[in-house]
Design a protein around this nucleic acid. Structure first.
Length: 110
DNA sequence: GAAATGACAGAGT
DNA sequence: GACTCTGCCATTT
């Protein structure tokens, strides 16, 4: 099994973790926003890489979703249940991106 | 040091 | 409105 997990050995990784931690309860954010908070608005991919590693256990990574309002490709089914995504009713499973807009962390100040 | 991988984003068709 | 392709970045091997 080859599972290259990233570790928080860099400041950037730490920054991403801090950004996720900044997410208020009942709200979700996108990789792009996290990347931007980390200082690299184009590093959404890198953000996903860091999460994959799980360098910060306990961190609400499940609150971070794709900009499209979808979950991305991590296949978090049980996770969503535990996630506070029900802030607006339900983000995934039925209505999706629309409600997502309601719980989206208003951090994107483009 | 270089190549491969990956939980995305945005623009174009 | 939906699908496809490319670009950007960081980490790991």
């Amino acid at each position: 099994m080859k599972r290259p997990r990233a570790s928080a050995s860099s400041a950037f990784t730490r920054r991403v973790i801090a950004a996720v931690r900044r997410i208020p309860p009942g709200r979700v954010t996108t990789y792009g926003d996290i990347a931007r908070l980390a200082g690299k608005p184009r590093a959404a991919r890198a953000v996903g890489n860091i999460m994959r590693g799980g360098g910060a256990p306990g961190l609400p990574y499940h609150r971070v979703i794709a900009a499209a309002g979808r979950l991305g490709g991590y296949g978090g089914n049980e996770m969503l249940r535990a996630a506070p995504l029900r802030a607006g009713g339900r983000v995934v499973g039925g209505g999706g991106a629309r409600q997502f807009s309601a719980v989206r962390w208003p951090s994107r100040t483009r």
